[in-house]
Amino acid sequence: MSVIEATQLTKVYSDLRAVDAVSFRVATGESFGLLGPNGAGKSTTMRMIGGTSLRTSGTLLVNGLDPETHGPEVRASLGVVPQTDNLDTELNARDNLIMYGRYFGLPYSYLRPKAEELLQFAQLSEKATEKVDNLSGGMKRRLTIARALVNEPSVLLLDEPTTGLDPQARHILWDRLFRLKEQGVTLIVTTHFMDEAEQLCDRLLVMDHGQIVAEGSPAALIQQYSTREVLELRFGSDRNVALVERLRGYADSIEALPDRLLLYTADGEAVLARVRADGLDPVTSLVRRASLEDVFLRLTGRSLID
């Protein structure tokens, strides 16, 4: 059964087609990712799923209901983690969880023990009575995620869950999200981090300018849109572009970025050896496995993080 069915979903702001005729389905228990740069329409899509942004046209069903006409009922089974934390700064950490549960109409008898359980889940038990403003960025993010779980949602919407977090905090978060996935919670994640998408998502929608440019599992997308390996060469910013033509025959394709050239090939080391043998001497060179970043670059000609 589909948790989400979007057909020709469109959102037009006065001067911008933020989401442009997007259609997709998400199955129960799936980890589904929306990958794209800032302004691709990911957050707007998330808000329409929660019924807090009204669509311009198209149809959308969440657990079989239209969030625009049944917002409260739809959201009763959703957990929403917004892009920027919107914790209640006038309440402490514990009361943030309890009050949020009250908004779902849940009784205190359920919420008091639930709040302790969630504080523990978020590793914030010692910070229970701390004002939200006194928490670090990573703690606020974990509290926001814990808060989204207070109603035991079957679908969790995570909008850029780890943006702005340090690597350690990100890994703690990914671990927590992975546990939820194991419990059968459907995850819908927007991100512009390819490693995050690869870690968390079974299936991805690559978005750009409000439209879907590709869809598939991370591995399938890489296989379809990229070669197995990538050779990164730096010749210095003046020479990079000038050498593109000369290197054309060495790889399946070449992308020229301002600071480096990317050569797509099945065997990076072999190409590097031929480049060196040809008398070209890059300042630095790197052979790596292709990633979703490369998929996006190939599809749009631009990198994910501007």
């Binding site: 807090t52 917002g71 409260p72 917004p82 920027t84 919107n86 209640d88 949020y100 109409g105």
Partner: peptide, 17 residues
């Protein structure tokens, strides 16, 4: 700025509430 209502409206609460 405080985005308080954004948080509330992500729950079962509707704008009327």
């Amino acid at each position: 700025f405080a985005k308080l209502y954004e948080g509330m409206l992500a729950t079962s609460l509707g704008p009327l509430d």
